[in-house]
Design a protein around this nucleic acid. Sequence first.
DNA 1: AGCCAGGCTACCG
DNA 2: CGGTAGCATGGC
Length: 198
Amino acid sequence: MQKMNKIKRLYYKLLQQYGTQQSWWPIIWNSDKTFEIAIGSILTQNTTFISVIKSLNNLKELNLITPQNILNIDIDILKTAIKPSGFLNQKANYIINFTNFYIKLNGKIPTRDELLKIKGVGEETADSILLFGYNQPSMKVDAYTKRIFLQYGLINQNAKYKDIKALIENNLTTNYKIYQEFHALLVEHGKTLSKKIV
DNA sequence: AGCCAGGCTACCG
DNA sequence: CGGTAGCATGGC
């Protein structure tokens, strides 16, 4: 076998252990997947995805997984719908902020910098939207990623988001499917690790 | 019964 | 710049 860098080795090791994680991001509504994934990316901030699913189901029942309807509805109804995933006051506004931006895009793919200007969209959420919502090869780094990389000695404690992102992007083939797969695998593996060491 | 979850903003020094 | 309190809820 060809000589691989450590990131690639980890990728294939996890792939062998857990198998492919295709369609790892669950789709509830499936009409505007990009929009749905973006809203899910905001809702998932510092929350378990189980809670996000509940919120997305609430939104679906209210027919709110559509940009126009979200902007037309009373914000208190939006807050009630997303309550299961926590931080309802700020996330409701974050969702509205993103929705306004999304409508103005008119189908265009946003840049990462444009996304980062939205209040409520930080680095991880921006990458999540690009990678899973738009199928763009922009690696998403999360707490699991950092934890696992620390454990394998691939980074040190003070590595920052952009450092880890660059490390991965420089060592894997630039391909959104591979990035999606890798992230999903890291989450699956991360969930099996017992304690938070970051 | 406290800690953590698929973070971000605002504000501090 | 780096560090951190606050944000809200639910699961274990």
